[in-house]
Each structure stands twice: as structure tokens, then as C-alpha cells.
Design a protein around this nucleic acid. Structure first.
Lengths: 345, 345
DNA sequence: CTTAGCACTCTGGGGATGAGAGTGCCAGCT
DNA sequence: AGCTGGCACTCTCATCCCCAGAGTGCTAAG
């Protein structure tokens, strides 16, 4: 067996057992328990020495003298980083995932919503997702619609994305400018969002001032749609799980957690910060925002081919079943990537 | 002063004082307190007699022998029904509402979302809303878009509503049928959703089988859009307020409350059940669903002219500041109606 | 009908206590 | 040198008791 981290094999084993036991029961774990559970062939006294050392290293903590140990954030971190194997989901869970992805995918957004709920059911935590930006998606419709006193910019993407924005008509309004703009927009159908946006800025320079304004407004709608980091809806689902009795959060912490989950901008920021190439785990105070709520985040990106589309994951207590969470998020993200890749062709 | 309900003036006054005091402090209210607060000119002994009678009537209850009284659901009901006057909002609150509706309304859906959050901030409870169905809205676009292996039905309403649905192509697919359908749909622009739906069913009878299928699919999308009771998104906002420490809910109750708030269908059902012409209050067990969570719902419809569009309101604990809640909901619903009416022209 | 007075009830906080869990350390063993 | 049994020590938590305080319900008198 290889060394785990820099701890030495036995310390690592002790740490792992403590994390798993604590996650399972919610009670601080004593040396006896570990001596029984982890088959290390040493007595509880030896375990006690190891635990003292682990506490010295900042990986464990002591609620009080005569209680067992609980992992610190750093302890969880070490545990997660030295997990010997990927978690395997149970058959029920695999079936749940399979059946969720069984039908042909029509609308990625719908599937994503469903996946968030699926993750929340699998893990009993809250599911979150950042849907794809539209940059490389092709436009199948791009319209400026006259709605009497207002106008609507409407963009429809190849994969079913629809962006709309309703705006006041610009002050300088003329039917010719409007029709001119409409015609130019029609010419952009088939191009990608970002190409169209660039093209619009170009075109805007060549036309009348009135039409110029209109085209810029449309360009701005496209800009917002392409930026994954703004004005996107963060999807959140299954938050009721966080209010479960099993969770140890105090009311005030729970409240702040819910508040953040509701603030899309803040959640986007958090999810953006924790994004990584593979399954990523952020534990408690590792992120300034989550530090305030004793929560951990497990996310993974999903892709179409090689391009990252978005992020999906879960939010739960630091005392989390990381193996389950990581396996679930990984599995769902993979299926989602397959689905998105297929859709992309 | 008129009789309040069938209780007699003094009993009603005692009940009102108990409700207000209990809502304010969260503590059971004793006879002394009432004798001081309600200036009835009688002693606490008399109040005690009245309280015993009110308890007999099922309007008050006793946590234990030597505690004060707290209102039952029926007690709150009587209180709400015999409120002497409409609540007046404080200046800050009126200003918050005014400033929220200060800008010209462009997109009713956006305004509605904002209004839900506004209500949740005003009352410190959770805001909810059922957005309008589309029945009487005019279609400004109705399209069938070829998206390769799938197709999208896209409907855009006069007031900014956008409905989309992505579907598999029907088995019997032909370019002619598709173009035929597209042409017919274009002819429906300017009509209302429900007229268009009816017209589509008519048209479907007169065309080829392939085209028939396409038109029916579109008709079904319109049908869903017009039904306020299905496939609509219930808007929910400010749920974090419900997790506040001041709320007395047990964890399990809180959890069930959140669960229901997340289930759109169930919330739609509840909000549909409690809907009324004016501000409506549903207290605790008065509704089977809310009975389970010791919560009350205050809602009001909003209208454009005379037609009901949707419902907006709040969900909070039965121990709620009903005066504030009703005044806030009423004020926001009124402003919303004004805005919607203006938009309608 | 109202009220003062009073006995009674129940809660909740404040010790006190003891069992139990778990630690830390030491001395002896391998 | 590392492991272990043994043991004293510490701290929590549940329990019990007790009492003050709040509030009631009833009675008898105004």
C-alpha cells in the first residue's frame, strides 16, 4: 500500500476512519471505535497517540477533553485528496441516473433542471447548476419585434436556448431604421452568438444613427447571453434537504445559507471560483463564502466534446458523504456531457 | 362601536390584544398584560373570565395551566375577520413599494419576480406568485422552427411572454407539411392564444395527415400556455426568511414547508385553492396542505382592467403580523394591477 | 357583573450529583 | 523504539431536586 499524503499509512487510515465514522453517525469518534472499525491490529492506546499527532497537525479537533475527535476542514481536505478509490454508486442510484437519461434529450435546459433535482435526491443535499453560455451556439432566430410602445429582442439558439429582452424603444425611432435592423438580423441566423455579436458591432458602424442604436441593443443582448458569468440563472434544487433534522446547522447559519442560494450573482461567483476540470470539492472555510456556512460544495463541469458548457454539483454540510457526493456528481456530469455532445452534432 | 363578530365587544378586544401581543413577543399572554395594554377599564380577574370563555369557544389555547393564552387558528381567523381597519404601511415601506414601481414597466414577468422579492422583504416572510396565463394575450410570433433532428414551437405574446417547447419531429415528416404549417402559423399572429388554439384545431381538420400532426402539437403548446393551472412556474422568493431564528418551526416542519414550496404543482394547487377576489388569508389547518406546516398564506389577485391575471402573496407562520402582511400584499397587488392595466393598452 | 384575594399548578432555571465516555500519560513489555 | 494495559483525570450529559415566578381558577364580597 502506498503512502497517503505525507502522513504515513496508519495516520491516514485513522483519519479516514474518523471521517467516515463521524459522517455516518454525527458523533465525535473515540479511539476504541477506531480500534474496532479500522482493522489496524493495534490497540486503542496507539490510536490515541496517532490522534494526538493528527490533532497537532490540525486535521482533527476536540469538542472538549473527554469527547472523541471530529475532523477539521483540513482533515476533510486530506481525506478527500487521499481517497483510495472512486466511490461506486449503489444499484438503485445507478438506475435512477440511467432512467433519468434514458429518454432522448431534446432540451438541454430541461435536462439540466432535472439533473439538479436528481443530484439532490441522490445525495440528500441541495443540487446546483450553472447552465451553458451561448457563445458557440448557432442562432436559429434573431429578431427585433415591435410591441407597440416597447420592443423585444428575441434570440433562439440551435440547442433550444431562448433569450429575450424587452426594451423601451430608443428615442430616435424610425420605421426604416427598424426594418433595416430587422433585415440585418435575419442575415445573422446560422452564425454563432459571438460571431453575430461581433458582426453586429461592425454593421452598426455602417448605418444610420437610429439603426446603429438598435443594433447595439441587440448586440448587448447577445453579449449577456454569451457570458456564462452574468445574468444566467443559477439552478438550485432540493434545498429542503438542507433543512433536514440530521443536519447540524444552527438556525442562523441555515438562514444565511438559504440567502446565498437565492442570490444568483453570489452563487455564480462561488461556483465560478470553485470550478475545475474534474470533480472539485470545496470544504468549509476554503472558500470565503462557504466558510460562513460550514458547507461544502462538490461540482464538476459538463462538456460538449471538448468545450466546457457549464457546471453541476451539490451543496451540503462539511460533514458530508464525500464519496457519495463525488461519485454522484461525477456520474451525472458524465452523462450530461454525453447528452450534450450528442445534441451538439 | 359595533359588535365585532358575535363575541361581544370586550371579548373581541381581549382576543385582539392577545393576538397582537403574542405576534409581537412570541410569548403566551397573561391577563395582567392585557389589563394593562387594552385599556378596557377592568381588572385582570375580569379578563381571566373572558379568556376562559374565549378558550371555551375554541379561540384561545393554553400551553399549560400556568402559562398565558395563545390564539388558536380559529382565534387568528376571528381576529383577521374582525380587523377594525386596514393596516397602514409605514413610510419606509410605502417608499420601497413606490420605488419598485417607479420605472416604466416593460416586462410583466420581471416585475412580478421583483414584486415577490419586494413582498418578502416588506414582511420578512416568503413571497409567492402565480404569473398570468396567456389566454387573452395576443400572439406576436408563432413559429415552428426546424432544428435538425428536433423542432421547436415558439410563441411570443404581446406582453413579453415567451413559450417554447422542443419536440421530436413527428414520424411522418415532410418538408411540404412543415412549410404549410409554418405558413398557417404566421397567419395566426395578432390573434389571442385561445383563439389561435381553436383556429388551429379547425385548420388541422382541413390539411394532410402530416401537417395535421404538426398543427396539433402547436395547439397543445398554446393550450398549456393558456392554462394558468398547469406548467406555469410558481415564483417563490425570500424563503430564507422562513429559516429565521425568530420563527418557531421545528426542523421537520420547516423541511416539509420548503419541500412544498419547491413543488410547483402543489403550490399551484394551494394558491388556486386560496384564491379570492380580494386579499385572502388562509390560516394553518384551514387548508389541508398548510395545516401540515403551521403556516398561513396571504394572497391577492392582480388584474388588468377587469380580468384576473394571477395571484401574488406571502407564506409565513400562523403567528404572523396579519395587518402588515395584508396591507403589504394589498398594496403590491394594487400597484401590480395598475402596471398590468397600463401595459394592456 | 366585577374584583380582590388566595390557593394551586406548572414551568424553568439553578445547583448538585453520578455515570459514562474518552483522553493522556506512564511504566512495562516485546 | 514502538506498542499496550492500566489508571487517574476531565468533561459532558442526564437526572433529580428545589424554588421562585407567572398565571390561573375559584370564591366571596362589593
Amino acid at each position: 500500500m502506498a503512502d497517503r499524503g505525507e502522513l504515513g499509512q496508519r495516520k491516514a487510515a485513522v483519519l479516514h476512519t474518523i471521517v467516515e465514522e463521524y459522517v455516518r453517525t454525527g458523533e465525535p469518534v473515540g479511539s476504541e471505535t477506531i480500534a474496532e472499525r479500522a482493522s489496524l491490529g493495534v490497540s486503542s492506546a496507539t490510536i490515541r497517540n496517532e490522534m494526538a499527532a493528527l490533532e497537532e497537525l490540525g486535521l482533527l479537533s476536540h469538542p472538549h477533553t473527554s469527547a472523541g475527535r471530529i475532523p477539521t476542514d483540513a482533515g476533510y481536505r486530506h481525506y478527500v485528496d487521499t481517497l483510495p478509490a472512486r466511490g461506486r454508486l449503489k444499484d438503485v442510484q445507478r438506475r435512477a441516473i440511467a432512467s433519468h437519461f434514458a429518454e432522448a434529450i431534446l432540451d438541454l435546459e430541461e435536462v439540466l433542471k432535472g439533473s439538479v433535482m436528481l443530484l439532490s435526491r441522490l445525495t440528500q443535499y441541495a443540487g446546483v447548476a450553472v447552465p451553458p453560455g451561448a457563445a458557440e451556439e448557432q442562432l436559429v432566430r434573431l429578431e427585433l419585434i415591435d410591441m407597440g410602445p416597447t420592443m423585444m429582442v428575441l434570440a433562439v439558439g440551435q440547442h433550444g436556448r431562448v433569450d429575450k429582452q424587452i426594451l423601451d424603444r430608443p428615442e430616435h425611432w424610425s420605421a426604416e431604421a427598424f426594418h433595416g435592423a430587422q433585415r440585418k438580423l435575419r442575415g445573422l441566423q446560422g452564425k454563432t452568438y459571438s460571431d453575430s455579436q461581433a458582426k453586429l458591432l461592425e454593421l452598426a458602424a455602417t448605418v444610420s444613427a437610429d439603426e446603429h442604436d438598435l443594433l447595439l441593443v441587440v448586440a448587448d443582448v447577445l453579449r449577456l447571453a454569451t457570458r456564462g458569468d452574468h445574468a444566467t440563472h443559477v439552478m438550485v434544487g432540493g434545498v429542503a434537504n438542507l433543512a433536514d433534522e440530521a443536519q447540524t446547522w444552527r438556525r442562523e447559519t441555515l438562514r444565511r445559507l438559504f440567502e446565498t442560494l437565492e442570490r444568483e450573482q453570489e452563487m455564480l461567483q462561488v461556483l465560478h471560483d470553485v470550478a475545475a476540470d474534474d470533480v472539485s470539492v470545496t470544504i468549509g472555510a476554503e472558500h470565503p463564502t462557504t466558510g460562513g456556512w460550514e458547507a461544502s460544495i462538490v461540482t464538476a463541469p459538463f462538456r460538449a466534446g471538448d468545450v466546457n458548457l457549464g457546471t453541476i454539483g451539490i451543496v451540503g454540510p462539511t460533514r458530508m458523504d464525500y464519496l457519495l457526493a463525488m461519485a454522484s456528481v461525477r456520474a451525472v456530469a458524465e452523462r450530461l456531457s454525453e447528452a450534450a455532445t450528442e445534441l451538439d452534432q
